[in-house]
Design a protein around this nucleic acid. Structure first.
Lengths: 224, 224
DNA sequence: GCCTGTAAGTGAGTTTGGTCACATAAAGAC
DNA sequence: GTCTTTATGTGACCAAACTCACTTACAGGC
């Protein structure tokens, strides 16, 4: 994956830096650029009329962002991208990317591969959220965070990103209170535990069992 | 869209014919081919352990199927494809497609475009199902069927595909009974009506209003 | 015509999850 | 230290949606 992305850095572009909380783009904005994350972490979210927020990804080094409108007639971002931590992204303008893709077949193929993986991620998330209720959504979110940002420690997997319950609820399309109650249960059952404000997953197999995890691998089952 | 797909027919492949109810592939099968639908209609579904079925698409002339595992190391179909009506598909083996994509940049770019549209469809469906409850899921399904298979008649839009309530419920990740009750309401409110076993949508704007339709256009908001 | 099988419709009861309203805890500001 | 703000934890209640059980309607076979 890393090597695929390196090839895109040969395309002329600009480096942008973002402070935490700063938006790279808003949904509805006219889309001009395609981005790679160089450093930091970027939340990808979508707003609902009701004020609810649906969080979709937490992009990190190597993630591509804003690729959806690439070949649209009237390109518009359909998500928000907001920095979670100080971040650097590499921005390539669509027309520039278009001309490179036309010239270099391997580039287009690599992009196909990347987008294919995106599709599969999206589908597997869809499955978890639709078929296994809120518990499924929350467990799936935890597993994905563990795969993306988990560090093996002696008694489990520590998710190295600080996340509030509200943020996690947004990833699971759930009310904060519902997530909270499910977390209380998981703590009682010794499946998770809080450590220095981070989540420690002590029994990830429990989570996987409950949502009939298809063991699709870390490349697909992540939050990036 | 049509012209894009014509280019793929220059790639050597085989024509397969399917009878109604016949499977093109099952989820979990080793994936060898990429398909275009030439004629007929193909259901794309996914099974859940519980016996529930989630229906995702109803592919028709011009739709591509089975593209997800294209660049996987161990390619496996993650959905089922089953003919709804007598159908013909054009099957291209992955290695053949790979070599053509390497040689012809415009082919890879067209595939990028097609898959980009797929992604956007998937996202918009996700949004409807996640953010607007079961009503949102059902209304979204109706709108998509209307966009794909609707015929304008003097008093509304007739969905020209015969669908049972159970099938529609599968598209909406809903229990049949729930869909049934929502349909009863819609009939009472004169939003829909049954005509010769087909659904006639009399007030599609009502449906769109309820789910905060973003009017993303027929290219995205469909069921193909 | 009848019989059979499948689909549709509907009530009752239960579960799940969301909302509201607080109480408590933790983290900063000063 | 106090005060303020933000996050967490929970109970009570309500609404949405699922399940179960059954009735009704319709189509096809014969």
């Amino acid at each position: 994956m890393e090597s695929m992305i390196r090839q895109f850095y040969e395309i002329p572009g600009k480096i942008l830096t973002l402070k935490p909380g700063e938006y790279l783009f808003h949904e509805g904005d006219h889309a001009k650029n395609f981005f790679f994350v160089r450093t930091g972490k970027i939340f990808i979210t979508k707003f609902a009329e009701s004020g609810r927020v649906l969080s979709l990804r937490l992009a990190t080094k190597g993630s591509i962002i804003g690729e959806l409108p690439l070949y649209e007639e009237n390109p518009v971002y359909i998500f928000n991208a907001v920095a979670q931590s100080p971040s650097e992204v590499y921005a390539i303008e669509f027309p520039t990317l278009h001309s490179y893709l036309e010239k270099k077949p391997w580039l287009a193929i690599n992009l196909l591969k990347i987008i294919g993986v995106h599709m599969r991620k999206q589908h597997s998330k869809f499955r978890d959220l639709i078929l296994y209720g809120k518990k499924g959504a929350i467990f799936s979110t935890l597993i994905r965070f563990a795969n993306s940002y988990g560090q093996k420690v002696d008694d489990g997997i520590l998710i190295s990103v600080p996340l509030t319950n509200q943020e996690l609820a947004n990833y699971s399309a759930t009310a904060r209170e519902s997530l909270n109650r499910i977390f209380s249960d998981l703590r009682r059952q010794n499946v998770i535990e809080m450590r220095d404000g981070l989540i420690l997953i002590r029994d990830i197999d429990f989570l996987k069992r409950e949502i009939q995890c298809e063991n699709c691998g870390r490349e697909i089952c992540n939050i990036e």
